[in-house]
């Protein structure tokens, strides 16, 4: 019994020690401002996941007795023209507003990294062909591609996210490829080759993990851009459709502006700007570290 307790205590203590260590490492990479930015994004993400628990109301509960209400105890940020609680809509809106960029970045990175690895490993003609194809896709503006896809499949999160993923993929692939190229020329790669490690295993277990910091920087930066582009597509009426709560949808409310209730539009604007600024700062920090290390 007592030994068990001692063991528990020990593991608890090490666990407590691990957390500060991780925090210190993060602090070194991101700086104090970066930690604050990461904290903010994390808070928004947690609120999005726990929306049913933390949001005071359901996003589409209408209260015709409190239409266009100003901020009060019952509605901390007021209500919109249908009496829906603004704070609750912002919290629920975080779900689609963050899920979309996650899909974009996940799909784009999932295609880009294998392509970059093939390109860097085989080089020569393979590299040339892949690079040319990527250049072609890169020349097509992402927003236009999304509009074309919506013209085909109708509006929605998935068509928009897939279109943006295709548009973002070339840039991620290009940056990761140049990182992998540098790895490819290092001595340990020939050592792996001599040991008979297959190309796939060498890339999956050694080369790609070694450029993970480059990949993470790209993922973060792309996430920020995707958030903006998807919100813009919602604003254009091509992505999330009203009455679903989404930040871009909430900004597209010119009647609120014309009727003299600007706060209903300014809150989602503010949330978007804060999220984008935070993510961009973290991304630049991660990418900047990488450049610093290279020099």
């Amino acid at each position: 019994m007592s030994t068990l307790e001692a063991g528990d205590l020990k593991s608890a203590r090490t666990r407590l020690l691990v957390a500060p260590k991780l925090m210190r490492r993060l602090h070194r990479r991101l700086g104090t401002t970066g930690m604050a930015a990461a904290g903010f994004v994390l808070l928004v993400a947690i609120a999005a996941v726990l929306a049913p628990l933390v949001a005071p109301y359901r996003p589409n509960t209408e209260d015709f007795l409190a239409v266009n209400a100003t901020p009060s105890g019952a509605h901390l940020l007021g209500t919109d023209e249908l009496g829906r609680d603004m704070l609750s809509r912002l919290i629920w809106g975080a779900r689609t507003s963050l899920l979309g960029p996650a899909i974009v970045v996940g799909v784009a990175t999932g295609i880009a990294v294998p392509l970059a690895a093939i390109s860097a490993w085989f080089g020569g003609t393979v590299d040339l062909v892949i690079s040319r194809v990527l250049d072609l896709i890169f020349a097509f503006p992402g927003l236009l591609l999304a509009i074309l896809v919506v013209a085909l499949y109708g509006p929605g999160l998935l068509p928009c996210a897939i279109a943006l993923a295709i548009a973002y993929m070339p840039l991620i692939a290009r940056v990761v490829r140049s990182g992998l190229m540098r790895e490819r020329n290092k001595a340990y790669v020939s050592a792996l080759d001599v040991q008979g490690v297959s190309a796939f295993a060498a890339c999956a277990r050694h080369l790609v993990p070694n450029v993970s910091s480059i990949i993470w920087a790209q993922v973060t930066v792309s996430f920020g851009y995707a958030l903006v582009d998807l919100a813009a597509l919602s604003f254009l009426g091509l992505n999330i459709q009203p009455p679903t709560a989404d930040w871009g949808v909430m900004v597209n409310n010119e009647t609120a502006l014309l009727d003299g209730h600007p706060l209903q539009v300014l809150y989602p604007c503010l949330v978007i700007v804060l999220c984008v600024t935070s993510i961009a700062y973290i991304g630049n920090r991660l990418a900047g570290d990488e450049q610093g290390a290279r020099r």
Binding site: A232, V265, A280
Partner: peptide, 20 residues
């Protein structure tokens, strides 16, 4: 300037310089 998306900038300008 670099952290305000175009559609947010459009809405903010509309609200302040045109409506207000």
């Amino acid at each position: 300037g670099t952290s305000v998306p175009t559609f947010v900038a459009a809405i903010l300008l509309l609200e302040f310089f045109s409506l207000k």
